[in-house]
């Protein structure tokens, strides 16, 4: 896996008076789980779309290793974006490269506990299940960066926790570089190796903090909450971003 460098000097929408992103520099180490935390509407989705190559109207560069190119990505959108007229399995298969073996799907479905649902159409599934399928699809393509745009938003707390645990299980089995966008600090601490806090208008990186909690302790809500309190105390600049 290659390290990835993202430098965005300026991203301004044609109708806006000021840039939505300015002088943002992100370094992604391979197989690192990074959470981007920032207020709603600060441009996090715009940033992910730029990395994904969906938005090319910006001034800056993306480097994969030494090469100016867009990394191969897997994208878990806020809305799962599954094709409702294709079954769960077909939805995942369609994302695979021609040279990829579909066997990878079986393994991923098993980890995400969806083997039984593979021949079902997405409309018959719950939102939590649809989100898990979107995660499988993103892992299945073996991406250089996995982009996740608040994938657990609008799930009830127990379901969000279940999907989060399954995601971490999958990521530990198949390590990938993950860029996970959220505005929920507890969720970010539970998931990330490193937190990057982003400000709004224009979006800039305010601070970067590594999460020292061991992976085995991430299910412990007391440990998460105590680190959160400690963070807010030691980094007052974060408070206004939440």
């Amino acid at each position: 896996m290659t390290d990835i460098q993202i430098n965005i000097n300026n991203k301004t929408y044609p109708t806006a008076s000021q840039p939505s992103i300015a002088n943002l520099k992100l370094s992604l180490n391979s197989n690192e789980f990074i959470c981007l935390v920032g207020p709603s509407g600060c441009g996090k989705t715009t940033l992910l779309n730029i990395i994904a190559g969906l938005d090319n109207a910006y001034d800056g560069e993306i480097l994969v290793g030494q090469q100016h190119t867009h990394p191969k990505i897997g994208y878990v959108f806020q809305n799962p974006r599954l094709l409702p007229w294709r079954t769960v399995r077909e939805n995942i298969e369609l994302a695979l490269d021609d040279n990829q073996s579909p066997e990878v799907i079986d393994a991923l479905l098993e980890v995400m506990q969806l083997t039984q649902a593979q021949h079902v159409y997405p409309e018959r599934l719950s939102l939590g299940m649809s989100r898990r399928i979107a995660i499988i699809r993103a892992f299945a393509v073996d991406p250089e960066v996995l982009l996740m745009d608040e994938p657990f938003v609008s799930l009830d707390a127990p379901t969000a926790r279940q999907v989060r645990e399954l995601l971490i299980k999958l990521w530990q089995q198949r390590p990938h570089t993950v860029l996970f966008v959220t505005h929920d600090l507890r969720e970010a601490i539970a998931l990330a190796d490193r937190l990057i806090f982003l400000s709004a208008s224009p979006m800039q990186a305010v601070s970067e903090i590594s999460v020292p909690i061991a992976r085995s302790e991430r299910g412990n809500e007391l440990a998460i909450e105590s680190f959160r309190q400690q963070l807010l105390q030691n980094h007052p600049e974060i408070k206004q971003l939440l």
């Binding site: 994904a52 190559g53 969906l54 990505i73 959108f77 974006r81 094709l83 369609l94 994302a95 699809r137």
Partner: peptide
């Protein structure tokens, strides 16, 4: 949204 998804996954 679905067209963007297809672009991301190089359909």
């Amino acid at each position: 949204d679905l067209l963007d998804m297809a672009r991301c996954y190089h359909f």
